[in-house]
Nucleic acid binder design. Structure first.
Lengths: 196, 196
DNA sequence: TCCCCAAAACTAATACCATTAGTTTTAATA
DNA sequence: TATTAAAACTAATGGTATTAGTTTTGGGGA
């Protein structure tokens, strides 16, 4: 059932990740990847469905890795502490794996089933963390969208060199999350006031 | 001093914008652009410095356009109203010009002088709006980073189909900005309390 | 009015790239 | 040890950007 052992998908994804993190996702070509793996480009088609297929698998691979680090960051924590930790983990991932992080957002058609599922796991984890703030249902979904926007926006802008001013970026992350959490609390309070 | 009139840069940028908005920035190639302009690709080199040069000019073009719409949105407004309006304008721009919006963030080297200047204008405008919240100096810069992260993150995730759940996106924007503003106020209040 | 010339467009050629088709190699299994 | 299916290969095609060198052209100076 296995008449020959050559490359395997994981080896390919790791090599692609190295290229992406070192030189950017656009430098991940079948040509550069084949060279790194000491193979001719057409050989890669035995394992992946062309460049688009590689990018999709890389997106899922990155999302799974990000999710695992997110889960570790949230483990044993709750409330504001948990939010700060997953935020730090998210930003750290984008810094450690700039190219792979790019890949997670570059899904050819983001509607792909595997990408959806991997992304859904992250949304579920975020929803779980926000339960500590008495957020459920639609308000929770809006809040998760807010948190994701903050994290992706910050990671993306930092990566593209969008923050030019010489001011500590980690401080910014902490303050932005603090502001987000303070806002959640304030709005909750406001709701309770009117509910009386 | 002008022995022949052919294409001009603005015509090229408009055509590139149309392709980008209709089919995505990656479909803006010298080949596709030349075809749209009824010209052979090498002719474009008389006006732009290759594909990287085109992308840079497109980034600046997009930033200027976004800035102009931002300025219009902020005109005559202040405080929370102004923040909500520039947020809506930002998201609207990303929706109207998805490809051009992509281009603004895809600066080859974001450290380019023209890109920096165009981006700086937007930061200055945001700083001006936040002055209404008694924010200046470093806290203001952190706050602008937060606002930019929210807006870019939301626009980017929406564009890539990252928000899968069937829940009104405009409501999300409004709530996220409300949360951001409530957070700014809450932290301000907190500072004042401790300052006593 | 006509000529000039520089800018703009062109053709031709090169070097990448992804992808497909068809062939050869190879190693686990039977 | 022979089989065989997977995996790697070579060859070929068509798309891309880019450079070099040539031709076209139209506004300004004679």
């Amino acid at each position: 059932m296995s008449p020959r052992i050559g490359l395997d998908l994981n080896t390919i994804l790791k090599a692609a990740t190295e290229i992406a993190d070192a030189h950017g996702i656009e430098e991940v070509t079948l040509a550069s990847l084949a060279k790194k793996l000491n193979v001719r480009s057409p050989s890669l088609y035995n394992h992946i469905d062309g460049l688009p297929g590689l990018r999709k698998k890389l997106a899922v691979y990155g999302l799974e890795l990000l999710y695992s680090q997110w889960k570790r960051a949230a483990a044993g924590r709750s409330g504001e502490d948990a939010v700060h930790e997953i935020a730090k983990a998210y930003i750290a991932f984008a810094r450690t794996h700039p190219g792979l992080y790019e890949a997670t957002l570059l899904a050819p058609d983001s509607w792909d089933h595997d990408v959806q599922r991997a992304g859904g796991k992250m949304v579920d984890l975020a929803l779980g963390v926000l339960k500590d703030f008495e957020l459920e249902g639609e308000p929770a979904i809006h809040a998760v969208r807010g948190l994701r926007s903050i994290l992706h926006g910050f990671a993306s802008l930092e990566q593209k060199g969008g923050f030019g001013l010489p001011l500590d970026l980690d401080v910014s992350v902490r303050l932005i999350i603090d502001t987000f959490l303070a806002g959640i609390h304030a709005i909750k309070q406001n709701e309770k006031k009117y509910a009386k």
